[in-house]
Structure formats: C-alpha cells, structure tokens
Write a protein that binds this DNA or RNA. Structure first.
Length: 943
RNA sequence: GGGCGAAUAGCUCAGUUGGUUAGAGCGCCUGCCUUACACGCAGGAAGUCGGGGGUUCGAGUCCCUCUUCGCCCACCA
C-alpha cells in the first residue's frame, strides 16, 4: 500500500465519521476514579454558542484550543469528557425572531406571548444547532451524546432550583431602583450588559433662576448654573444639589430655583454627592433618570417623576403630570434634546455649550444607548457569592492564564454589585415567582420549584411574574447543569464535577466565567474548574477586530473547503500565543493558511517516503533492536525525539494541580505550576521543528541509503524511522488530527480498528530499546547521538563554503578534517561517517593531521577540529582576502574585549566558575582561530 | 479618573533566577526540478533590544523616569 500524492482534504469528513462510529469521543462515567473506575477524569464544558449562531472564527479559535487540550488529555489516558451544547441566548435570539416577523410587518405584540414563544421555538428547532454540525467540520471531538441546551427541561430544572435556593437563602430580592434599560429591546440589562463606549458629546450649562429665599443670600446672585449632558431629563428635575461643605452655596441651601421651560419651583438641597470641584459645583437631581440622582432622591425623600417612557419617548405618567410640554411630547429622547436645547437658548437659560468626552453605556446586543430607568427588578445579592470565588483564586485552587487577568478578576469581585437578573423579554426561563391577588397583604410573593396554579396559602388565583431570567442566569450553572445537577447523585456530576479547564475569550470573564465560579462554590462547594484559559481574539492584518460590520472576517468553513481543517487548526494554534491576539489576513487566505497546508503536505510526504521506500511489511519493534546496531543518526533522532516529547509536555504543562490544600478545594496550584503550560503555540513550534528540521531534514536524508538498500541494517533504520514518525504523529495529533490519523492507520505498526485519536501520548521516557539494554547503553547512545551533531556540523560547514564560493551543486570537491592527537575520537567519527557526509554535502571528507597547502576555506568545528576545503581553481583571491581580513578584524575586536574581561579581577572573582571557564575556553578557541586567519592572510594575500 | 500589561529583525513573537557572539517563524535575497516533498532543498542578509538616567565586574533581563500603544474598571453631572 502506498499513499496518494496529496492528502485529500475532502476525506476529512470520512475520518471524522470513523471516529464517531468507533465512539472515540464518548466518555464513560463509571471509568472515572470518582465513580469507582481507574482513570482520572478530564473535563471541559464548551462555552455554549448561541443556538442560532453560525460558526465564525471566534468559535473556531475557542473550540480548536479546547480540542487540542481534549485530544491531549484523551491520549494521556484520562477519562476525557467534552460537553457540547448551545445557549438559548435570550435577547439575541428574540431579536433575530423579531426581525424575522418584522418582515411580515408584525411585532411580537401582534403575535402575543404564547405565539411568539412558539414561533421562536420553531425557529430554533429548524435552524438551531447548525453551529454544532459546523464544529464537526473543524474536528471538534466533543461527546455529542451529551449535547446540552440551556432551555431544555433538564437545564430549566437547574435554573429553577438555583433561583429557589438563592431566594430561600435570602440572596434574591425584588428591588425598586434605577437600572439600565434598552429602549429598543425593551428590557432591563445588567451592569455588564450595558457597555461603555467613549463618545464626544456636549456639556450644556443651564441657568436656574433663584426664586425663593434668595434675599437671604449675601450676594447679588440671581441664578445657579448647572452642567448636564442630558438636558432633556431636566423636565424631571426635582432639586439642585450642592455639597454641604461648599462655602459658595451654603447660604442657598433651602432656597428654591425655577426650573426653566416648566417654570416650576424646586429646592436647593445639600448632599455629599455634589462635587465642588466639578463644573460649577451644582448638580441637578433627576431621580427617575439617573442612578446616582435616584440615591440622592431617596436620601432626601424627593418625588421621582418619570418623563421618558419605555420606548425612550418623552411622555407623562401619573408621577409627572404637567412636566412634559407639548413641545416635546411624543418625541424620541434624541429629538427632545435638540428641542429643549433650542428652547433654553431662546429663553436665554442656556449659558454655554462645551464639547465633552464621556463614556456612554450601550446595549451589548443592539448597541442602542441605554436609558437609566426606574423600575422593579429581581436582583441577586452577590457579595456572599463572591467571597469564596476570591478565596479560591487566592488559595491557588483556581488560576487564570494569562495571569494578568487574575488582577482584573480580583478587582471585579472586590467591588461586586448586585446582579439584575430579570429581563422584560419573552424568550427565556420565566421567573418562578407567583403573585397572589387575594392574600392579605396583596401580591404576596410565592417562589416555587413547580408551576403554581393556586396560592399555596389562600388557594386563590395566582399570576406568574411576566419577566424572564437573564440568559446568563442559566449559563452560570452550565458546568453543574450539563452534568446532571441538581440531582446530586447524578452519575456524570459525581464522575466529572469539578471539571478541569475553561477556555474562552476574555470578553465574557464577568458575564460568565466568574459567575460560574461563584455558582460552583455556592451550589456544589467546589470551583467548577482549576484553570481558566483566556485566548486572544481574531484580528485582521491591520489589527482590527474581525467583525460582521467591518466585513473583515474569515469564514472557517471557507478555509476548511480551500485548505482543510488541519490547515485552519495549524494556523490558529501556532498563532495562539498566550496573551496575544491572532492576526489573520482576510484578503489573503493563501498567505494566511498556506503554512498550515504546507506542513500537512510535509507530514504526508514523510509518510509517502516511509511507505514507498521502507515498505509496509511488519517492522521490528524498536525494543527488539540491539542498541549496538544503532547508527549515530539513529541514536541522534531518538534523543531528539525525547527532547521533543519533553518540550511538548512542557508546552502543555500539568494536567491538573495535585498539591493538597485546605479550604473547599482539596488541591491547589503551586506558585511554580501556576503560570506554566497552556502554550499551545509552543507545542506547535516544538513539534514542527522536530518533524521538519530534524526528522525530515536530517534523519530521513541520513538513512535513505540504508533503507533503500534494505537488509539487517536497513531494518534497523526502518524500525527507528517508524518508531520516531509514529511518535511524531502522536505529538501532532491534537493540532492536526485528520492528516495524522490518516497516515497513522497505514503505518506498518497499525492494528486494524485502533485510532490515533485514542492512542497513547508518547512518554518522555528513553526509548524502549535502551531500557532493555540498561543505562550503559543509554550512555553510549547519548555519546553517539552527540557524535552525529559533529557530522551535521561538518555537513553544514561544507555547504556553507560551497554556497559562498558558488560551487555548482553537481561538482564534487574534497574537504579535509585536520585533527591532532587530542581529537582522535573526532577523527574516527569522520572516517566512519565519510560516506554520509559525502552524500549530504557532495563533498568527499578525509582526515589528515596537516592542512593542505594552497588556497582553502576554513571552518572551525566544535571539539577544535578545523575543516579545510581546498579551493584550487574555485576561488577569487581578492574576494577571499577581503573576506578573511573582515573576519579577522571582527574577531580581533571581540578577542580584545573578551581578554579584557578575563583580566578583570572582579569578573574572575565574582562570576560563577563555570561562566569564567566557559569564557576561557572561548578565548582559547578564538586564539586558535585568530592564528589560523592570520596564517591564511599571510599565505594567500601577501603577494 | 483608577488599575494592569506591552514596546526585541520589514511583520508576528521567544528570550527562564542578570552571565558565551540576542533567537524562531513568516517575508526578503542567492543558488538548486539532488531518487518523499518546488506546498520543496541548500545558503544568506537584516536588530543602538522605545528614549534617558541608575545599580552591577557584567543589563534585552533589576530600579527610576519619559514617550507610545493596548486592556480592564469607573456615578464627576
């Protein structure tokens, strides 16, 4: 059997199907040590994409990072579970469906709640889950049998349980206050959902005429000037506030001013909230339309008239009769602002307008400027939940990579604010609260795990709260609910909770990641994971964030079609530096993804060489090869493999913390472990370098002759090649699973029905052959491996010289290794490896104790041997002399500096002995080289 | 406004507790269709380690300062 010329990317889906058929991605709870099995569990819960989402590069990045970890864990013989699923995505999905019915000229209110929810369910049933299918195309190895959905009955049960428990524990309450309101989505938002954007607006200075009590004022002041960015809210002003310590206005406290336009009198009050240093030191108080003013209003028992309605339109209600003039009634707040400013200007009340830079909150789903709105909402008291989450990070039970985010996490938790969890939407989990109309007092609140049809107390009719819960109130339970909580005996919960790693972009650190930690501690007593891995985001060549609106995105499915999933994965993983964003050029997919495709092809071609030239006959296991039969190149590649495995292990770091700890989490990260591992780009680079620069460039080239010739020695080379390549495929499988699986199944060592996806991760152990032969052989092998480095060095030096003197590739020339008594071992290496050197460099190498006469190029090899290539008629003497003189001058300069350093007593006495020794050896080598160069210049250039 | 991080080759980044002549990938230049691979092979050029000051025998690495970017948070109306 042999491989086709190219790896067929169209065959990736067939490989995926084979994995599915074999159940490679399925986890068994009973195999977990926590459930009586014999394997450590390793679990990741996938950040659930919105159920209506289409795969974009952000998902790709996130899931590929997880897949690399999951495949590594699986190969490391962990009972590996990756839980996939989707999020019902309250606002987002509702918005999508609203847009859909808007095309039919309808609003959700035309349909009514039940019909709208049914319509949304139908839409989700029809289009939902597309993204999960797309994830398969990029090789995501999740356990699809456990696919979860936040709005499923099972997860809804968890949501209700969480709400009821928190309520029973007094951590959920109904609050009347000013919250963030999106006038487009018609719902309240949490602090996190109202995002700040810096904007340049205007700061309007408005004069309020002093009307009452002014005669007590000492000055001649007639008016107070305030500054505001939102003049339209002045219609709801109920006071002006000054700081009680502010001398300028002390005598005005208690006086009244006239509110412009409306001509109503409002008091001047004293409150700490007014900052004497800002503006004029006077601030207008609008309790219903500003969160701070609300607090001031509450402190002073002020009225709270509302002049802007839910749609962001100027309107009166019972609280604000007479406060919205015809001028602006029915106008959008933006229009109203213009009109109010004009009216103020006309009446002379507008003192001045200045440009003002400030941060304005926007709805995170639709980007509308949010409106502070007075309303009743359900809140979660967060401080008690935050405490264990903080302690978990501080004790080392949790780590966040990159670690700079740990400070951000701590800061947020230390300043945590209560969480508004009610949303005035129809798509989501209905709040499990029922109000009784008949009870005394009326509207008594009943919170229940089951739907209520009658009041539990008076058996009267009840009405369920109209609102739904924040989407994140279901997703913050994800690691628990997907594993079966609240059933504490659930098999999966016992076997796989706590999970291990949470992978995400940093933008949902507070929305989701931190809240999951809080719910994990609260409901299960343990952090849901020990590692949070935050990767960067995808940006284009100009470093702009990829986004739909900019149209600068890369469609992962396009990339899969054009270059294959492995090429996509390779590019993303190798660009995934810890803490850095990943840059991709959407206008040049070839440039961006060719390196991945090229690497896949390189792997494929090594496979082709192996199968074409080494054949598919059963191969001798490496452990049956006598260590004495190993050539220097064999020993070398085996030691390079060991190094590569060690590097890859370092790149991943430890699977989990194991150091015992006190507190709720039994183990913790040590300081040394805490920042280690999760360097997936290092993994890619280490594996690539091994395969390409060492295995392909040197080992395969070195053994070609032996393998093609066959025989006993050919079989030794073949055994080593198969062993090393097999291990390399294992190291690379987490990154490029498709091509490695396809090659691996054709290796002579492959057993029908086995998969690389569930094969063992290579151990950093010395190769099996050495263990059998003992430490002595291992030592010999290390020495022989080192000798191959001399061969590589000689080949490199000769190539360099040939290139420098433009010796035609086909022309065979000679080289002489000049050795003396001290370098006899090296002489033996060159004598024995002369054929190899000649094949790799097209240059015959012989050993001599004297340099040949005449023009020649020199190279100094480690060990002190000098390599001399007679140039005969190849050299341009003038050019060579110029080069030699340049080299000599550079060397002299460095030599003098080093000599001075070594004659510095402080250096010799204070620097570590090995450093000093190293410098001395270097000086000796330079000395020899200098002499050599001087001799060369003498013989060649003095004419 | 508060806090955090970054600045090293044209680009993207490594550089462990200060210690050989600062590295890699991509790009660039030169030569090669050498019996797996031109999606390849071999060789090469290229950096005052953001500026300034300090500590030290020795600083890309430690300290101070300035500049420029980035991120998180925040009720200065």
């Amino acid at each position: 059997m042999s491989l086709p010329d190219r790896f067929d990317i169209a065959g990736e889906s067939r490989i995926y199907e084979r994995w599915l058929d074999a159940g490679c991605f399925h986890a068994e709870a009973r195999r977990s040590v926590r459930a009586g099995g014999d394997r450590e569990p390793f679990t990741i819960v996938m950040p659930p994409p919105n159920v209506t989402a289409i795969l974009h590069l952000g998902h790709g990045l996130d899931n590929i990072a997880q897949d690399v970890l999951i495949r590594w864990a699986r190969m490391s013989r962990q009972e590996t579970l990756w839980v996939p699923g989707t999020d019902h995505a309250g606002i987002a999905t509702q918005n999508v469906v609203e847009k859909l019915i808007a095309k039919e000229g309808k609003t959700r209110f035309d349909l009514g709640r039940d019909a709208f929810v049914r319509r949304t369910e139908a839409f989700v049933a029809e289009t939902g889950g597309t993204i999960l299918r797309q994830l398969r195309a990029i090789g995501v190895s999740a356990d699809w049998s456990r696919t979860a959905y936040t709005l499923s009955p099972a997860l809804s049960r968890a949501v209700r349980e969480a709400f009821v428990r928190l309520h029973q524990d007094g951590l959920i309450y109904r609050g009347h206050r000013v919250i963030h309101w999106c006038p487009r989505c018609l719902t309240s938002l949490s602090d996190e959902e109202a995002e700040f954007h810096d904007e340049t607006g205007a700061l309007y200075h408005i004069a309020y005429r002093i009307s009452g009590g002014a005669d007590r004022a000492s000055g001649t002041r007639r008016a107070l000037t305030i500054a505001t960015t939102r003049p339209e809210t002045m219609l709801a002003d109920v006071a002006l506030a000054v700081n009680p310590a502010d001398e300028r206005y002390r005598d005005l406290v208690g006086a009244t001013v006239v509110l412009p336009i409306l001509d109503i009198e409002i008091p001047i009050i004293a409150d700490e909230y007014a900052d004497p240093a800002f503006g004029t030191g006077v601030v207008k108080i609008t309790p219903a339309h500003d969160a701070n003013d609300f607090e001031v209003g509450r402190r002073h028992g002020l009225a709270m008239p509302v002049v802007i309605d839910a749609n962001g339109v100027m309107a009166e209600d019972a609280s604000s009769t007479g406060r919205v003039p015809d001028l602006v009634r029915g106008d959008d707040r933006v229009v109203a602002r213009r009109k109010i400013v004009q009216a103020l200007q006309d009446s002379g009340a507008l003192v001045t307008t200045e440009s003002h830079q400030h941060a304005v909150r926007h709805c995170y789903r639709c980007d509308t400027v949010v409106e502070p709105r007075l309303s009743d909402q359900w809140f979660v008291t967060m401080a008690p939940l935050a405490a264990p989450a903080l302690a978990g990070l501080r004790s080392g039970a949790i780590r966040i990579l990159p670690q700079k985010w740990e400070g951000v996490y701590v800061h947020w938790l230390e300043n945590i604010r209560d969480w508004n969890i009610s949303r005035q939407l129809w798509w989501g989990h209905r709040i499990p609260v029922w109000y009784c109309k008949e009870c005394d007092p009326p509207y008594d609140v009943h919170v229940s795990r089951t739907d209520l049809t009658a009041c539990p107390r008076c058996d009267g009719p009840v009405r369920q709260d109209e609102d739904v819960l924040d989407t994140w109130f279901s997703s913050w339970l994800w690691p628990l609910s997907t594993l079966g909580w609240p059933d504490e005996k659930a098999e999966d919960l016992r076997a796989f909770y706590p999970t291990d790693v949470l992978v995400s972009a940093p933008d949902i650190l507070f929305f989701w990641i931190t809240r999951m930690i809080m719910s994990g501690y609260y409901f299960a007593g343990r952090s849901p994971y020990h590692t949070v891995l935050l990767h960067g985001i995808a940006r284009d060549a100009e470093h702009r964030k990829m986004s739909k609106s900019l149209g600068n995105g890369v469609d992962p499915i396009d990339v899969v079609r054009l270059y294959g999933a492995d090429a996509l994965r390779w590019t993303l993983v190798s660009g995934m530096g810890l803490g850095s964003d990943i840059l991709l050029d959407p206008n040049d997919l070839e440039k961006t993804f060719a390196p991945g495709r090229n690497f896949v092809t390189k792997l494929w071609n090594i496979g082709r060489f192996l199968l074409d030239k080494a054949g598919t006959a059963p191969v001798t296991p490496l452990r049956n090869i006598d260590a004495n039969q190993l050539h220097r190149s064999d020993a070398w590649i085996l030691s390079r493999l060991d190094a590569a495995v060690a590097e890859c292990d370092d790149a991943f770091g430890p699977l989990r913390p194991v150091t015992p700890a006190s507190g709720p989490d039994p183990v913790r990260w040590t300081d040394a472990e805490r920042g280690s591992g999760m360097r997936l780009n290092d993994l890619a680079e280490s594996a690539r370098r091994f395969v390409w620069s060492e295995l392909a460039d040197w080992y395969v080239e070195a053994i070609k002759g032996r393998v093609i010739e066959g025989g006993a020695d050919g079989e030794v080379a073949r055994a080593v090649l198969v062993h090393v390549f097999d291990a390399a495929l294992r190291l690379l499988h987490p990154i490029v699973p498709f091509v490695t699986e396809e090659i691996w199944r054709q290796l002579p060592t492959h057993t029908e029905g086995t998969f690389l996806a569930s094969a063992a991760w290579p151990t950093g152990d010395r190769a099996a052959g050495d263990r059998a032969a003992g430490d002595r052989a291992a030592g010999d092998r290390a020495a022989r491996a080192h000798e191959f480095d001399l061969v590589r060095e000689a080949v490199g030096a000769v190539r360099q010289i040939r290139s420098e003197y433009a010796v035609p590739p086909g022309k065979h020339i000679d080289a002489v290794a000049v050795v003396n008594g001290a370098t006899r071992d090296i002489a033996r290496v060159f004598t024995e490896e002369a054929d190899l050197v000649e094949r790799l460099s097209r240059t015959a190498l012989r050993v001599s104790d004297a340099a040949p006469q005449g023009a020649a190029a020199h190279a100094v090899l480690s060990g002190g041997t000098s390599l001399v290539v007679p140039l005969a008629d190849l050299v341009d003497v003038d050019k060579e002399c110029a080069r030699l003189r340049g080299e000599l001058a550079a060397l002299e300069k460095q030599y003098v500096a080093l000599e001075a350093r070594l004659s510095n007593e402080k250096f010799v006495s204070k620097a570590p002995p090995d450093v000093v020794d190293g410098e001395r050896r270097k000086l000796a080598a330079w000395s020899a080289r200098r002499q050599q160069l001087r001799d060369k210049v003498q013989t060649l250039c003095v004419s």
